[in-house]
Design a protein around this nucleic acid. Structure first.
Lengths: 205, 205
DNA sequence: GTCTATACAACGATAGAC
DNA sequence: GTCTATCGTTGTATAGAC
């Protein structure tokens, strides 16, 4: 790789990196282009050499996150047979999602803001949740095909779970005060989603 | 009430009403002051005679919604003893929340956008969820005092439930495509939160 | 109280030198 | 590719007439 390309790549990387910091601090929507360039030590004009807009930069950040997330998911979870009604497997899935959200909270937060800000008529929030939870939906469909009774439609159930994780994650990751630690949250969500409020003993009562 | 006060009240009401329509159409964040005044058939200057800012108008809308919501909740739900692990009672609580969100989706959507847009460091999302789910938390604490095992800390559990309802409601209320109807959603959420993915029969397997 | 007209600030985006 | 300087747009908020 030539020197010119290297320098350009460095600037691009610097902008992406600075954007993450600034997004974490002020939020995506409140961040101006100049906030990013200032934090990166570059000029306004230079920004547009690499990104057409703030939104395009966000897409690039998301791409980088997805790449690593796919690795994690593919490597950690996914034994060929997945049974979300098995405690260990459900917990693994929730933990994987939660971990990704924690490790990339700046990007996740930015995407969340971007999603919620979209034109109401676009249905982007629903579409986004459906996409994020596609794997869970497939697992639930698989369970249903095996004759297991589920709370309801697999897609709706998966989306509901995703909604819970997403907004709770956003709330916790952006809370300054005392907040439950990751393991506590994951355990609570696992039990809640596995056996509900009635708990595992209900049939014996 | 004098004529002058009446006219002023009418303009105020017209602005509030128009704001709801415009928020529903474009979303709160994408709505400009002039969008509201135009829809209300009033002038820009007149707006500031009644509200200091768009945010203050939103607070007024929220106030009006809360008043009616409190009526509904107080009247419909709340037998002295509340048991969220009782299917009918859980369903009533979920249905009440869901109904309020549906009937006031413009205001709820606006509040949601406003909440998510807030400075990340403010912790407003977490605080807001805690506030909205205070009643559920109390019910869960009551259950725990009676020796019932719960998935986890009552506040965390209640907030998780609220997160699920809030984001799912936002997604569904702003989706143009085919989406599950209210009863289906409420039934699914009830079963999911009552018995989880494992279902009521787990102990017998 | 309500209107019209406008001042003013903020920000996105580009032009042109280096 | 990167910079400085600047244009143009958009939206908030106010001034002053009625």
């Amino acid at each position: 790789m030539g020197v010119r390309k290297t320098k350009a790549a460095e600037t691009r990387a610097a902008l992406l990196d600075a954007a993450k910091d600034v997004f974490a601090e002020r939020g995506y929507l409140n961040t101006k282009i100049t906030d990013i360039t200032k934090a990166a030590g570059r000029s306004t004009g230079s920004f547009y050499e690499h990104f057409a807009s703030k939104d395009e930069l966000l897409q690039a950040l998301m791409q980088g996150m997805d790449d690593r997330a796919d690795e994690l998911i593919a490597a950690t979870v996914h034994p060929r047979d997945h049974d979300l009604s098995d405690r260990a497997q459900l917990r693994d899935h929730l933990a994987a999602t939660w971990t990704v959200m924690s490790e990339h909270r700046a990007v996740v937060g930015a995407l969340f803001q971007s999603m919620v800000t979209a034109d109401p008529g676009s249905g982007r929030t629903w579409a986004s949740l459906v996409g994020e939870t596609a794997v869970w939906r497939e697992h639930l469909e698989h369970l249903r095909e095996q004759g297991r009774e589920l709370p309801g439609d697999p897609e709706l159930t998966a989306v509901a779970m995703g909604a819970m994780l997403s907004l709770l994650g956003y709330a916790i990751n952006n809370s300054p005060g005392p907040v439950p630690d990751d393991d506590t949250v994951i355990d609570t969500l696992t039990d809640l989603l596995l056996h509900g409020l009635a708990g595992p003993d209900r049939a014996r009562r």
